[in-house]
Lab assay of single mutants.
Amino acid sequence: PQVPQCKALYAYDAQDTDELSFNANDIIDIIKEDPSGWWTGRLRGKQGLFPNNYVTKI
């Protein structure tokens, strides 16, 4: 099955070790969508939390 993905609308710099940094237009694999607004994703071999208001699902 296809892994859900999202595209970064803005760059995000991780504020903690469990967060994921990314650049605008990066494509992130979505591991888990949480109602809190912090999703778990994977990018370039690293997994971490990121704010879903920085991305749009594709």
Rank of each mutant, 00 (worst) to 15 (best):
C6A: 15
F50L: 09
N25T: 08
I30A: 02
Y54I: 06
F22R: 00
Q2I: 09
P35N: 11
I31P: 01
I27R: 05
F22M: 04
N25V: 02
V55C: 09
A14W: 00
A11V: 07
D16I: 04
L43D: 01
I31Q: 04
L20F: 01
A14V: 01
D34C: 14
K46G: 05
Y54R: 11
Y54E: 00
F22Y: 03
G48D: 01
A11P: 14
I27C: 07
S21A: 07
D18H: 07
A14E: 03
L43F: 14
W38M: 14
V55M: 04
N53F: 15
N23E: 14
A11Q: 15
V55A: 05
F22L: 04
D34T: 11
T40Y: 12
I31W: 04
E33Q: 15
I31A: 06
G41F: 02
L49S: 14
T56P: 04
Y12L: 01
Q47S: 10
L43Q: 03
D29C: 06
T56M: 15
I31N: 01
P1G: 08
L9Q: 07
Y12H: 07
N52Q: 09
D34V: 06
T40C: 10
A11Y: 11
G48W: 03
V55L: 03
T56F: 14
G37H: 01
T56Y: 09
L43S: 07
K46C: 11
N23V: 13
Y12E: 05
K46R: 14
G45W: 03
A8K: 01
F50S: 03
K7D: 00
D26F: 02
R42D: 07
I27N: 08
D18C: 13
A8G: 02
E19W: 05
L49C: 14
W39P: 04
A24L: 09
C6Y: 06
A24G: 08
R42M: 05
A14I: 01
W38L: 08
P51E: 03
N25W: 08
I30F: 02
E19M: 13
K46S: 12
R44M: 09
A8V: 03
Q15V: 09
R44I: 02
D26G: 00
N53I: 07
Q47L: 09
N53G: 13
N52S: 15
L9F: 02
R44A: 12
G41D: 01
Y10S: 09
D16Q: 08
R44W: 04
C6E: 02
T40I: 13
S36M: 07
S21R: 03
T40S: 12
V55H: 03
D29T: 12
K7H: 11
A14L: 00
S36H: 11
R44F: 11
G45R: 06
E19Q: 11
E19V: 05
W39T: 06
D26M: 01
N53R: 14
I30M: 04
Y12W: 10
G37N: 05
D16W: 08
L20M: 08
P35A: 12
D26E: 14
G41H: 01
T40P: 00
D34F: 06
Q47A: 08
L20W: 00
R44V: 09
P35S: 14
P35R: 11
C6D: 02
L9P: 02
N25Q: 13
